[in-house]
């Protein structure tokens, strides 16, 4: 009995110590990938730029907190959040059920459909599963697009790459016949010299379960306070025109979506 009581006391003390700790959000570390132009990418001298980055800066300004950016590989970005390498992920991460098991999301901050790009001389007729039967389809791993391809395009031969850079290399030299990614990301790439090889075949109809309701900001489950702060700030920049300003800096259309 004595042991039990002592254990209970110890747990109580730990709980008090743990509960007394209220987090101070004067400084927030934002995780992003830095390899997903035009949403987030690194310049040659190591500066982060892109839509996500500007939105993050606007949010921090609105919340009156100091923000610090941390880059992480995409595969390790949710583990990185959970492990505390940063406090929020602003990296075009789609809000999905599977991810909600591990982290919380704010409301969406943009929503664009996925699309398929192919080499200019490609003979693929359409974007349906039947059209893509047996072709080698590239996608970035751990993305909603790769999940979409796995579930909705099972006849295609899916190849997963750690970053878009690798699938770009492989579609350029003809190792894969098509790639699936966000329409904005693909268009941005096709507009460069690098993307001269290819064209957009068509957009895909997003699936709410797989693609989610759009891209949100991922927060650790226990940091409800930060999530509320982010949601308020997001509503504020949407209302005061700051969001539109950033939107127009990068795009000729509205990425917030319906």
């Amino acid at each position: 009995m004595r042991v039990l009581r002592m254990a209970a006391a110890a747990v109580a003390i730990l709980a008090v110590v743990g509960g007394a700790e209220a987090k101070d959000w004067s400084k927030v570390r934002i995780g992003t990938e830095g390899a997903y132009p035009p949403f987030n990418s690194l310049t040659a001298d190591g500066q982060l730029i892109g839509f996500d980055v500007d939105i993050a800066k606007a949010l921090c300004e609105e919340m009156k907190v100091e923000c610090e950016f941390v880059t992480s590989d995409w595969d390790g970005i949710i583990p990185g959040l959970q492990a505390g390498k940063f406090d929020a992920i602003i990296a075009s991460m789609s809000i999905t059920e599977e991810r909600k098991q591990k982290v919380d999301f704010t409301n969406k901050y943009y929503n664009t459909p996925p699309a398929i790009a192919v080499p200019k001389d490609s003979k693929i007729a359409g974007t349906s599963d039947a059209d893509l039967k047996g072709i080698a389809l590239g996608a970035q791993s751990s993305t909603t697009h790769s999940n979409y391809a796995e579930e909705k395009l099972p006849s295609a031969d899916l190849k997963l790459y750690p970053t878009p850079d690798e699938y770009k290399l492989d579609i350029a030299n003809g190792r894969i016949d098509a790639v699936v990614d966000d329409v904005v990301v693909l268009s941005d790439w096709l507009a460069t010299d690098d993307g001269a090889c290819c064209k957009i075949l068509g957009t895909l109809t997003p699936d709410l379960v797989i693609n989610g309701e759009g891209a949100g900001i991922a927060i650790r489950k226990e940091d409800g306070e930060l999530k509320d702060m982010m949601n308020e700030a997001l509503a504020a920049i949407l209302a005061n025109g700051k969001y539109k300003e950033i939107n127009d800096k990068y795009f000729t259309f509205d990425v917030y979506g319906g």
Binding site: I13, L14, V17, G18, E21, K23, G76, Q82, A83, G84
Partner: peptide
Amino acid sequence: VYFGVQIGLNELVKLAGYDIYFE
């Protein structure tokens, strides 16, 4: 090591009731 040790260490530290994190 890269994913596991980090998760494990931080769980341990949390269990002990501290709010620091190891990277």
